[in-house]
Amino acid sequence: MRWQREATGTRVRLRRLAATAILLITGCNRHQSALAPFGAEADDTLSLTIVLASGAAVIALGVVLLVWNASRAREHALSESGGLRLVLWAGAIFPTVVLTVLLLFALPAMRPLPESDADLRIQVEGEQFWWRVRYAPPGAAPLMAANEVRVPVGRTVVFELTATDVIHSFWIPGLAGKMDMIPGRTNQLVVRATKPGTFRGVCTEFCGLSHALMAFDVIAMEPAAFDAWLAEARRTERASSGRGAQAFDRRGCGACHAIAGTPHHAVIGPDLTHYSERLTLGAGILEPTVANTAAFIRDPSAFKPGARMPAYAAMPQAEAEAIARYLKGAP
């Protein structure tokens, strides 16, 4: 029967629609989304998006109604001069007015937040495929870190962004818009976090094989907690004795990595002083367990294709685990 076939066809279509919707919904989250803002600029962007989307929906509905009305009109009911008038008003004057209003509404939101010399500066350098982070608080010693950015809630923070090898792009969707990191140039991004929490940022400019694996954790902290953390982190010194520390030394890890309190001050790879506090391993891609850390040391390219760190396949598992435990904070 024909109606049965039609009903089956509708059901198949609905099922396909539901499957697509479910696939898309899996992308929803609160830690890396411009729809779940935790910063002043991202708040503005979200309200602009809502206004634009609703306005576009209303206009689309209006156009559909006009087409429906025109297609159902009796013959000779519509005149050519009426049509031309419609084109003039709905096709030229109305869009001009709407675009002017939108421009006036959107432009103030594009203005960078005001900043001063008294604001905390965080210098972030993009490298294949990780982030070098340097906190430069006004009137205090800087702090080196990597692959994690902490910001105090309610205070203005100036990110100074650059790159060493290729162009990267720095984007924390919940905090602010993206900003390119260009070798030889420093771009400024002024942000202000509005609520505490743990979020995620990503590289948004294709930068090589592991571009999609270049992310970082963002921790927005209450100002007092941030100050305490910064002071404590600046004091952190790691022991240079013990099995793991000796293996780190012997294997030449210090040729690329720095650990405060030890003779290792190299700046080629990520600073590992605060590795034990990090929420992820390998710039936002793995849980930083001892097992994962050891596996990463022995074969970084297995997790990050194109990573500059060489493989240590000949290193015994026990030694890799000793280094991992040392990095995780064991003496």
Partner: peptide
Amino acid sequence: GLSFVAVIYTALPVVFIGNCR
């Protein structure tokens, strides 16, 4: 008409953003 509106649209960001960054 088009050019008049376009010149205004080009000028508005200068008035509103007012920043070299």
